[in-house]
């Protein structure tokens, strides 16, 4: 579903991402962990077509993000860690705007908006301007907007930041459901416990380079993900 091949992104002299290769298959929840400034967000933004990259390639559903950006983006949903939404819009206007861009039919969008807004308990706030939303509410709205066009691949940058425990639990349920139905999820997180329980595969990045990847069992074995992560951080220091 998402194939990253030898991705390199440089800022001046510094390589933010250095020859990174990953493969996320349909049905997988793929976790991406690393210290602050490791290159997680740069990798994610390059995959979403926000940032151009210096070399390598990113394929989504078999299509190149460079050669077929619109085709890739029509299959993709991106949820940033700090969603900047159109503050002057109401929640429902924003969702309809996103649905219009993706060409979601009126009946289908109504069905999905009701479903997810009820799930995340945001229904009563949809008529309010986004400027009145808390960070958590904006995060929920961004999640709903990502789900209403039924993407095949969801890329998330620290999606649990700002979500209350119930919303976090619901998001995990939705992630499992999407993958069970053939979708794929690629997300970065600092919450290793969540990654440990949720992910089928995991990749650890440091200084822009991939230092370990594989299934959860392959990466952590009998140890906790936290101890494996800390050990790898020390060894590759």
């Amino acid at each position: 579903m998402l194939r990253i091949e030898h991705l390199t992104k440089q800022y001046g002299e510094k390589k933010a991402v250095d020859d990174l290769s990953l493969h996320i298959k349909p049905g997988e929840i793929y976790g991406f962990i690393g210290h602050n400034g490791a290159g997680k967000t740069t990798t994610i933004k390059a995959c979403c077509g926000i940032l151009p990259f210096d070399s390598g390639e990113v394929y989504i559903g078999g299509k190149s993000i460079k050669e077929s950006p619109l085709g890739c983006k029509s299959m993709l949903a991106y949820i940033p860690d700090n969603p900047d939404l159109y503050d002057f819009m109401t929640g429902i206007q924003y969702l309809n705007f996103v649905a219009d861009i993706f060409g979601v039919s009126a009946s289908r969008r109504e069905e999905l908006i009701h479903l997810y807004a009820d799930t995340f308990e945001l229904t009563e706030d949809l008529a309010q301007p986004i400027s009145a939303y808390s960070h958590g509410m904006k995060q929920k709205l961004a999640i709903i907007s990502a789900l209403i066009h039924e993407p095949k691949l969801i890329i998330m940058d620290e999606p649990f930041v700002g979500l209350d425990p119930k919303a976090s639990h619901l998001l995990k349920e939705i992630m499992r459901k999407i993958c069970h139905e053939g979708g794929a999820i690629f997300f970065s997180t600092h919450v290793l416990e969540v990654a440990e329980k949720l992910c089928d595969q995991i990749a650890i990045i440091k200084g822009g380079r991939l230092i370990k990847s594989g299934t959860m069992e392959e990466v952590k074995g009998d140890e906790s993900l936290e101890s494996v992560f800390l050990e790898l951080e020390e060894n590759h220091g």
Binding site: K45, C48, G49, I50, L70, G71, K73, S74, L76, A77, Y78, P80, D84, L85, Y86, D87, V98, I101, F102
Partner: peptide, 12 residues
């Protein structure tokens, strides 16, 4: 307004 990211990730 930092909404460029929104536009860049959508099929537009």
């Amino acid at each position: 307004d930092h909404t460029a990211e929104f536009l860049m990730t959508h099929p537009v």
